[in-house]
Amino acid sequence: MTTASPTSSKPLYHETYKHQEHWRNNEDEFEGAKLGVWLFLTTEILLFSGMFCGYAILRFFYLDDFTAASSHYLNWKIGALNTGVLLISSFTVAMSVRASQLNKQGQLMINLLISAICGVIFLVVKLGWEYGPKIEKGELPGAMFAYGGHAGEYIPSTSDPVFLSIYWVATAIHGFHVLIGVVLLLWLAWRAGKKHFGPKHYTAVENVGLYWHLVDLVWIFLFPLLYLV
């Protein structure tokens, strides 16, 4: 572990990384951190399950209205675009883990940056093409609902505000998770620039990657439930 890499005189951080004192070795620490993140992801799934459960119940109450509201208020093309963006970012995040295992620093950096950019694109699409126009048109949740409909084309039903509540709250909580993910990915990129990750130490890359996959996965469920069915 102490031998310096042949290309640089000073050993790099990831080559000499030593676990915190209370762990027995680096492997235990890595495994422990990973287990912790998996547990954390379980809590995330349960958090979103509250939203999915609320969606299921209210959809059950207002089945026809929800179907009509979904196709009227939400544009599946925008949702599909965002789905594609997140799928690409999931791939690049997986590649960045692989790159750190293979010690390919350039690839690591590029993949992390692409992932972060995908996250930003997702948020821009969400805010600019969905939230913005919706606020303008008054397609707002609950008591704030102020949508008049297009001159006789579509008459809002009384349960439209509830559908929009579910839409707004679920996508806002998800969007907040994407935002956190982008910050974490940029933090990884910053550390990758300082050559912190390599085959012997890539705990943070692995764990942020796990988190990012979960954020994608939640969207994979939100997209069809809100936009398609």
């Binding site: 119940i57 209210l58 609950g142 008591a143 509540s165 709250v169």
Partner: peptide, 16 residues
């Protein structure tokens, strides 16, 4: 924001 998910007056469900 009075989103109404739990508010029967707005179509929500307090039993939820």
């Amino acid at each position: 924001f009075h989103v109404g998910i739990f508010d029967p007056a707005l179509g929500g469900d307090p039993v939820l």
